[in-house]
Amino acid sequence: MKVNACLVNEDQRDCYQELVNVAMGQAADHLARLVGAYVVLPIPKVSLIDNSDLNMAMHDAKRDTSVSAVCQGFIGSGIAGEALLLFKDTSFASLASLLKYQGPLNRQMELELLMDTASVLIAACINGIGEQLEIRFNQGTPVILGQHCMVDDILNSRQDKWQKTLAIEIHYTLEQLDVDCDLLLLFSEESVKKLNQRIDFLLD
């Protein structure tokens, strides 16, 4: 618990929560407008995540063949992070019809659908956060885990780069539709310090 206290204090955590709540409101609105369906407003969870927690999540995504995952890096004003979207494959059919994808849904199309959805969900959320903190975030090209890069390679090479960092978890669902996905925003340890400075500025 000592480490937690060092990284983000209680006030800062509340502030992050508030910030993300506002951003989520905007993101859900964007999404609803795009798909023309009511998006259940999710309550994001701000927490500190361990290296091992993330590894476990990635392991699960790899083992469970019915889950697909996309990563996308983002950076703005020296604040860097990565978004990870975990998507239940049962959601593809309903999402495809929502976004007016025509024709039979093969694996290739599913992945493209996944990537498009990821870009929109991630952009909506980080832009919402960025606007409030006056940071303009850039997004890199999204990468599909398992297709564009191998999960084992990531797990093997990134073991000891960091221990604990700030994570924002968001669970999206669409009402009356079988769409179910989890968005994880992770900030690098270095960036948390810079983010804290901006948060302190808001708190003062």
Binding site: H30, R33, L34, M115, D116, S119, V120, A123, A124, N127, Q139, T141, P142, I144, Q147, H148
Partner: peptide
């Protein structure tokens, strides 16, 4: 929405 989208070679 003013969000960016991508196409990838894969």
């Amino acid at each position: 929405l003013g969000s960016r989208t991508f196409t990838v070679w894969q």
